[in-house]
Design a protein around this nucleic acid. Structure first.
Lengths: 238, 238
DNA sequence: ACGGTAAGGTCAACCGTGTTGGCATAAGGC
DNA sequence: GCCTTATGCCAACACGGTTGACCTTACCGT
């Protein structure tokens, strides 16, 4: 039978660890983020986390149901940081763009964590706050609920999907990352025009473009689409 | 020192395994896909793969440098299947849409494999073939190289990113997947309008929409954008 | 036809992983 | 200040990828 997990705020006694640290959900999540940053994508292990905290690995199970649960908490923390770095201006297009870039940036700031968490819907508080904010921007701009729901869905999924993809590239070890990026300057650039005319013709352009994220461009497409729907709604509404 | 890896076509002897099966890269990849399908996302292990093949796990290292290398090969196989299920019509918009949906579908047909592979650029033959095809459609439609390269980049990253995200949802165990989907009908729907007015107002719409992929919508936005660029290019060109 | 070489399959072992059940200790309500 | 029990610790388990030494037999050259 697994140990019972006690939510942080319901914790009654605070007993320091043998090495003196007093544990908490926040401390564990922060330490996990640090480990991911320092030791790379596979660097987050129960044992290593315990060592970094000065606690036995099994102690973590008093705070999280398992590594999977901890992972979700990390994802929610990233969402919180994204929202914290964002401020509303009242101009829907600027606000939506800034929020998208903030989420993207917050995840990319911890690529290894992003890879682990970006494709999971957590349903935790910070994620809900972000969802509410997005819907608020869209409905506040005057979109009908139908459009708002559809565009919200595309917006959040696109942001998380690109965050995970881009983070995946960043999370590679320095060695294999430069190898991947160099692939465009080598493998692809060397393909003969006879067999791959289109790649050959655009290879220099691609080599310059591929190492960067395509997210800002995709985001702009979504904003264009939103603007068009907004014009349509205003025309129909009066 | 690791065992030397011999590429399939350079293999000189074909020695049957103790249990009689004759190995090959293709057989291993196919079996790996079957295991992922049958046993779920974490179901692909060297030991289990060896067992399914009737071979010792360590034998795999004669064919792939490690599980990571095998993973890349699986990703390339999915690309091949996507391209194989696609046929050109000459109408750029239809072709691009069909190719995007084919890639997305090929990955979603093997969600667990997609999660492992979609965020890696492999540089393997089938992936290069897909890239060449996309660029061909865009340049064939009459786009300037600059636009073609940019839209190609957005297109392939968007397709893979959504494939990984959507596959992530599908790859969950039946239990936690219905839990995740039900979250929209429960957690989100129960948020009070006082604290979360926008979620409360659109909850029924979201509950119906969120379980489906946002990819088709995002793809259509990209096609709209491409059409606009194409009009601009034609206006400028003559 | 056959012998020697080395390719390719096998075995046993290593170390690191998440996770658990039982135990010890001390925090904090009374 | 006692007693309860929350909370941290320990030892162990099953399983993961990976490796080095090994054996066997398919194939090449004669």
């Amino acid at each position: 039978m697994p140990k019972p997990v006690v939510r942080d705020e319901a914790r009654r006694r605070r007993r320091p660890t043998r090495q003196g640290t007093v544990l908490s959900e926040a401390l564990i999540v922060d330490t996990a983020l640090r480990l991911l940053r320092e030791h790379g994508g596979g660097g987050l292990t129960a044992r290593r986390l315990g060592l970094a905290l000065g606690a036995d690995p099994s102690t973590l199970y008093r705070y999280f149901a398992g590594m999977d649960d901890l992972t979700r908490a990390i994802g929610d923390e990233l969402m919180g940081r994204a929202l914290g770095s964002w401020a509303a201006t009242g101009r829907w297009r600027d606000d939506l763009r800034a929020l998208g870039l903030a989420v993207h940036a917050a995840y990319l700031a911890h690529p290894q964590a992003a890879v682990l968490t970006a494709s999971r819907v957590t349903g935790r508080p910070r994620e809900i706050a972000v969802d509410e904010t997005i819907l608020g921007i869209l409905r506040g701009a005057g979109l009908p609920d139908e459009d708002a729901a559809r565009i919200y869905h595309t917006f959040i999924d696109q942001s998380l999907a690109f965050a995970a993809l881009d983070a995946g590239a960043l999370a590679l070890t320095e060695e294999s990352r430069t190898a991947d990026e160099g692939m465009w300057a080598t493998t692809y650039a060397r393909l003969p025009a006879s067999s791959h005319p289109h790649i050959a013709a655009t290879a220099p352009l691609l080599a310059r473009r591929m190492p960067h994220s395509a997210y800002p461009g995709a985001l702009e497409m979504l904003l264009d689409h939103t603007a068009a729907r907004l014009r349509a709604a205003r025309a129909a509404g009066g």
